[in-house]
């Protein structure tokens, strides 16, 4: 037998050889079992589920061949060269001549500030010119959370006993009262929340916006929950909060955007002023829309985390 390789490589080879197609795996197993299935005893149970360990597999021999290693090196070198080349060809940061020669780009750059009141052109594009797209994205997040709730929720278990056992089992390896984690969380959670709110509220002025700020807020919630447990976080964030915040945010987004589209398409005045670009209260609908998108994303992040972790809020 050959010397066993380190974990990473053997796992990778096992994945290469067993993770592929199931047909492949069955063929390999039947090949492996052939000399053993000579006796009558083993013919009675031909479906042995025992997997052959990777180092006994004859098909693994090619992995040790010199050309295989050379090929792997060549592929890795080619990938590195490709990525380095792509980075080297990137336009210089802050260079005014690197704009793509596109009519659309020019239009956005020239008109976003006066038409939407956003200093951050990206926010002006995704929440105003392509607001419908962002509306769909928020709803996709909500649908994803609904699906995960359906599949992983602990309330899906039929009998009370299984539910309790699962709950107990999944709570057993939680950090619990970890003083180190709690000290770090006590210091970091307020900073993370403030930073997330800053990103959301400054979305139309500086890089950022609802999605990134919401992700930061969700991370803060997750950190707080990890450090202090469910009892502490249920004082201000429960399943009910999640439900109401998500649904109200999406409803507000749909109604506001529907009103905006309706008035815009019919050439009516929407009575929403864009204000002075650069002020914190400017940009018309951009600020509230950023806020609701941030709420939805934060709730979604936290809900996904709790569902994948334990199946219960």
């Amino acid at each position: 037998m050959k010397k066993q390789k380190p974990d990473f490589f053997s796992a990778f080879h096992a994945w290469l050889e067993y993770g592929g197609s199931s047909l492949d795996r069955e063929m390999t197993e039947s090949l492996e079992n052939k000399p053993e299935t000579g006796t009558v005893e083993s013919k009675n149970k031909p479906k042995s589920k025992k997997k052959t360990p990777p180092q006994n597999n004859p098909r693994r021999a090619y992995a040790d061949a010199w050309w295989y290693r050379l090929l792997a090196l060549a592929v890795a070198a080619a990938m590195i060269w490709l990525l380095a080349e792509a980075v080297a060809r990137m336009p210089q940061f802050g260079n005014a001549d690197t704009l793509a020669d596109s009519e659309l780009t020019e239009f956005y750059v020239e008109h976003t500030k006066e038409e939407t009141g956003a200093m951050n052109i990206v926010t002006g594009i995704i929440l105003d010119y392509r607001g419908f797209d962002t509306l769909g994205e928020s709803h996709v997040l909500f649908i994803a959370v609904c699906t995960v709730l359906l599949m992983l929720s602990i309330y899906g278990e039929k009998d009370e006993e299984t539910r309790l056992k699962r709950n107990e089992m999944e709570r057993h390896f939680e950090p619990g009262d970890d003083v180190i984690l709690q000290s770090a969380a006590r210091l970091l959670t307020p900073l993370i929340f403030v930073y997330g709110i800053y990103i959301i509220l400054n979305g139309h002025l500086s890089p950022g916006g609802g999605f990134s700020g919401g992700a930061v807020l969700g991370a803060g919630l997750i950190l707080y929950q990890n450090a202090f447990g469910y009892e502490k976080i249920e004082r201000f964030f429960t399943y009910k909060t999640f439900k109401w915040v998500s649904v109200c945010s999406l409803l507000f987004y749909s109604l506001a955007k529907g009103y905006h589209f309706f008035t815009g398409a019919n050439h009516m005045d929407s009575h929403i002023s864009t204000g002075v670009p650069g002020n914190i209260l400017s940009g018309g609908l951009l600020l509230p829309l950023n806020f609701v998108v941030g709420c939805v994303v934060a709730c979604t992040m936290y809900a996904l985390f709790t569902m994948f972790r334990k199946g219960e809020f």
């Binding site: 390896f173 950090p175 970890d178 180190i180 984690l181 770090a184 210091l187 970091l188």
Partner: peptide, 16 residues
């Protein structure tokens, strides 16, 4: 601040 806490938690999980 954060990275040592992560290492500590991972080590604790391995230990458990």
């Amino acid at each position: 601040i954060t990275s040592p806490v992560c290492s500590h938690l991972l080590g604790r999980l391995i230990r458990e």
